[in-house]
Design a protein around this nucleic acid. Structure first.
Lengths: 188, 188
DNA sequence: ACCTGAACACCGTTCAAGT
DNA sequence: ACCTGAACACCGTTCAAGT
């Protein structure tokens, strides 16, 4: 087993600059912003970008690392929350907001769950898994008005995020509330 | 007022070939399929494509003409239907299926409602208008569990269509049913 | 009245050559 | 070990020149 080598200083610096420019570009233009433009603004050749991030999704995945950690921390917290119905609703809202970070991200996530080669696959599976468990808790507590699957939940989160990308976060939230109103039994 | 001239025979033929190839390309690759490829397969120069259809959306709009007519005919039928709740649900399903005709169409429609310059604007407005009226009917009949706006409805239809594009029509339908379950009062 | 195709600008991706 | 930048393939859009 090879010891981990420390990367060269210029490599580290280039990586950081690429990430910073990619974040700015993705925020402004969405996840299909020009990679060539990102490399140019970072002051490196395009080959350098590919050296650090072999695919667009690898770049996206690196950009989402911290954000993902925060989301999953929140998920674990909700799994321990006392009211399963409220926890489920909060989770769907949280993922919806997460998936609207960049225009185009919702599409990448929707694809990532089925595509094992996607650098986003693992995080998608984890999002779906937390959703499954929160759904199961709500079902066990008799909080469901009708049955639904984890796939329904994942589809809702991505679809609402997609709506949010091109209308407003408020509209996305209203869509989630509408669907959750169909899923959850009214409080007695 | 100028009399309508009959177009030249070769122009008509080129237009038809372009539409046929565009339909095939959009079905296969989605609405952002290469225009150059469409022109090539239709056997015309790219300038000819632009002569007939100045924008990608103009091409898309021409392709949707018949499909739109059928959709709106269905809408008028539903406006005259006896059960307002069932009519509303049927309309949302119908538009959702319509908007999934080509991958990428849901995004064009979501954009078209706000963009007056879009060649799809008029049909988007008409879809939203029929939705508004069906919603109003359902409200008047006391069939709503909670309030919702025409914008909510339009967002739902596009979001569900977007889901359908990348999962399955069944999943799109399940999403619609979930949201409609939140909107409509249960039958007593 | 319509068509052609060259021209321009822009992009994703790879890889031999450099340091 | 990493970086450069030319090379290749592909695309959207315009417009002068043709018929």
């Amino acid at each position: 087993m090879a010891a981990a080598r420390r990367p060269r200083a210029d490599a580290l610096r280039n990586r950081d600059r690429l990430l910073a420019e990619a974040d700015a570009a993705f925020r402004e233009k969405g996840t299909d912003a020009s990679l060539e433009g990102i490399a140019r603004r970072a002051g490196v050749a395009t080959g350098t970008l590919y050296g650090h991030f072999p695919t667009r999704r690898a770049l996206l995945g690196a950009l989402l690392r911290d954000r993902n950690a925060e989301l999953f921390r929140r998920g674990e917290e909700l799994l321990a929350a006392p009211d399963p119905a409220a926890a489920l609703t909060a989770w769907v809202h949280a993922v919806t907001e997460h998936a609207a970070a960049y225009q185009g991200l919702a599409a990448e996530l929707a694809e990532g769950i089925d595509d094992e080669a996607s650098e986003l696959h693992e995080s998608c599976v984890r999002m779906a898994d937390i959703g499954d468990r929160l759904l199961e808790n709500a079902r066990a507590a008799g909080a469901l008005r009708r049955d639904a699957t984890g796939a329904d939940l994942f589809a809702l989160m991505n679809a609402a995020a997609w709506t949010g990308e091109r209308t407003s976060p408020e509209q996305a939230g209203r869509l989630v509330d509408l669907a959750m109103g169909g899923l959850l039994a009214p409080p007695c």
